[in-house]
Design a protein around this nucleic acid. Structure first.
Lengths: 223, 223
DNA sequence: CGGTGGGTTGAGGTATTTCAAGGCTCGTGG
DNA sequence: CCACGAGCCTTGAAATACCTCAACCCACCG
């Protein structure tokens, strides 16, 4: 375990800037760095800020009382997260690796949205995008086999974070498992299987860098 | 199978009225009846209308290419559904029982939302509510046992459609199973188990009317 | 009445989990 | 510079939760 008890934000960077397409109104913006493994906010905490990943990666999860964990989404560079309607967060968000985020006071954004239709519609758009992802993920969690889940995961990551043909995964097998509703062993076995079938290759020895060798056959697993 | 090939809407009622809290602007409203088992709209069809259940019940589902089905939500009296951001539906919606809906042209609602901030914010609110449900359901599908899923389902239905202490389920065991990511046999066994444990009782012989006898113990299963 | 649409229950099969062991990498401290 | 532990990943073997297949029952309806 990393030490970090509650450091939140852990490092101030402080270069105010534009928040994506939330066109530059007079809202407060700042930037912070969260070290790998640290919590950005906790479930049911007041949602005072919304966030955008500048670089790094974040996971959002819910816990059952006995510790079972479901990761609802991974947030990668450019993604906005922490957008809630009520005043409390519905997930716990943690930095998977050292991560820089830009943040904005929720209340000030809310205030702008109350007068600016375009901002309100943009919020609606972002929320709908999240909803769409959640809907697709329900199908995966409810009805797909482990192999299908892992294939879908690889294709999702391929789409979202491939650079130079290589998927550099920021998250470990346990994170992937908790995202896909599996155990880490099952994820590992599925990856080994796809590897042995020639659908993917590993770069280096770390097993975190993957190259998709046969997207066609993977897509056939992604029903 | 019911006959209905494409009858959509199957019966015109035609009493324009207020659409929930989407305060009476000049949008076109009408009412229709869908017979039990008929499709209201299909996945990836153009989303020309949004709907509100007046009475009856609707299921929204996605299919995998081989027929596996995941129901994302049940829509009961008062619920609004079919709200999409893009121009196409992301689920197939079917009437579970004979169902009356009120409907509104999407484009006219969109048009209003572009000028009226309150409408836009209300759309945002509804979308967030759907998102919240989907997020909770991901946890259920990804991490809960069959007994926990069925208990959660009963408590959800208890909250949403109990009348006079009795839950009159409109959907059959297969629908419940496809909502919970289980098979109908597993749902049946879980209900039998809860019955034998004294946590619920059946009213009549139809098994569709359930009375919760021990919400406390059920809630303990709903982690 | 016979058929159809539910629903339950049992027996057996299987995908995934659980438990366990081992290997690799990397950082830290002697 | 090497040893060591921690974190991470893989692989095997055994356990199990859930699924599949099948039989049967009941209510309803034309």
């Amino acid at each position: 375990m990393l030490i970090n008890v509650n450091a939140r934000p852990s490092t101030y960077i402080g270069k105010p800037a534009e928040f994506g397409e939330l066109s530059g109104t007079n809202v407060v913006l700042s930037e912070f760095k969260y070290n790998r493994g640290t919590e950005i906010y906790g479930e049911s905490e007041p949602a005072d800020y919304i966030y955008q990943v500048l670089d790094g990666a974040v996971r959002s999860h819910k816990l059952l009382s006995d510790g079972r964990r479901q990761i609802g989404a991974f947030h990668l560079a450019g993604d906005i997260f922490g957008l809630e309607n009520g005043s409390t967060h519905r997930f716990t968000a943690e930095a998977i690796v050292d991560t820089n985020v830009r943040l904005m006071k929720r209340r000030s954004l809310e205030h702008v949205a109350e007068t600016d239709v375009l901002v309100a519609l943009h919020l609606l758009n972002m929320t709908t995008t999240s909803l769409q992802h959640a809907e697709d993920h329900m199908l995966l969690l409810g009805r797909k086999t482990s192999l299908e889940r892992v294939a879908a995961f690889l294709l999702e990551m391929d789409r979202r974070l491939t650079a130079a043909g290589v998927i550099a995964l920021p998250m470990n097998r346990r994170d992937i498992a908790d995202y896909l509703g599996l155990t880490l062993e099952t994820v590992s076995r599925a990856l080994s299987h796809l590897h042995s079938e020639g659908m993917l290759g590993f770069v280096g020895q770390t097993q975190r860098q993957i190259v998709l060798l046969d997207r066609t056959r993977l897509a056939e697993l992604d029903l």
